[in-house]
Design a protein around this nucleic acid. Structure first.
Length: 274
DNA sequence: CATATGTCCTGAGAGC
DNA sequence: TGCTCTCAGGACATAT
């Protein structure tokens, strides 16, 4: 998502509009008139990613924080449909481009933060290390004492930033760790394997430009579907053969109100410390 | 403090 | 242009 919009760097924001919509408004802070005033004329210095957020840094010292969340996108010029385009940033220069915030369910959030607000809201005590930089040591330090199931804990952005529900199941399947194991049961070697697998799975997913699921909402910046869903070994594959061992059937359970998919053959629950 | 649960929202799909 | 129901899930608020 970040790569797809890199061409906005160097442009200035000429306008910001929210298309008229009968849908619920996205959460935007500060409110649109203030937001618009603060970004008007600002030059875009860089585009970063932090966990699941896309961060646009302005020469005014402000930062636009996009949180597309589920079924949301930050994209250029074109979106899966017009109906769910929530914000349009008009940029100067040629060719003409517009930065779009597209969001189906209205769960997306857009914030405008100063440097100080960035540190307070997205600093290290608010957000764990990015999943692509994850080490077994860091993961164990943050979660090793927890009594939570490992799958639930992996979704905690304060422990590690960037793992969503889909990838938590895929990571544990590849690491061969049962999702219901408590964090405190896991050995250092196991934490190391989970961290390595996290980096691997997310790197592959990014290389394939993400996963477009059955609802078709996730798209690359050019509005074409991602390809990683073809590589899912367990996610949304209940009853099908596990993509890893190709023998046992994938099982779906619910943890903390979220679906978890796993392979009972690859991911056995050990009887002793693990 | 740690952990668990409810809540927000729209659209897809199942079942009748 | 059938209707109703369930489910999907990030992050936060609230409860325990």
């Amino acid at each position: 998502m970040r790569r797809g919009i890199l061409s906005i760097v160097g442009r200035r924001i000429e306008g910001l509009t929210s298309p008229r919509s009968t849908l619920c408004p996205i959460q935007i802070s500060p409110r649109l008139p203030t937001f618009r005033r603060r970004v008007a004329g600002a030059r875009i210095d860089s585009v970063d990613r932090l966990g699941k957020r896309v961060i646009v840094d302005l020469d005014t010292g402000d930062h636009i924080i996009f949180e597309p969340r589920m079924s949301g996108l930050v994209t250029l010029n074109d979106a899966p449909n017009k109906k769910h385009i929530r914000l349009v940033f008009e940029l100067n220069g040629r060719p003409h481009i517009r930065l779009l915030f597209w969001n189906v369910r209205g769960l997306g959030v857009v914030n405008l933060f100063s440097d100080a607000e960035m540190a307070a809201r997205l600093g290290p005590h608010k957000l764990g290390p990015d999943a692509l930089d994850l080490t077994g040591r860091a993961l164990r330090r943050r979660l090793g004492q927890s009594t939570r199931p490992i799958k639930v804990a992996l979704l905690d952005q304060k422990a590690v930033a960037g793992i969503g529900n889909l990838y938590a199941s895929e990571i544990l399947n590849r690491a061969r760790v049962h999702p219901q194991l408590r964090c405190s049961q896991l050995s250092p070697a196991r934490w190391k394997r989970i961290a390595e697998t996290t980096r691997k799975v997310l790197t592959e997913a990014i290389a394939h430009q993400g996963s477009t699921l059955s609802d078709g909402t996730y798209r690359k910046a050019d509005n074409r579907p991602g390809g990683y869903q073809e590589h899912h070994r367990v996610y949304q594959r209940s009853g099908e053969k596990c993509g890893q061992c190709k023998r046992a059937a994938v099982v779906k359970i619910v943890q903390a109100g979220r679906s978890t998919f796993f392979c009972p053959r690859c991911q056995r629950a050990p009887k002793t410390a693990y």
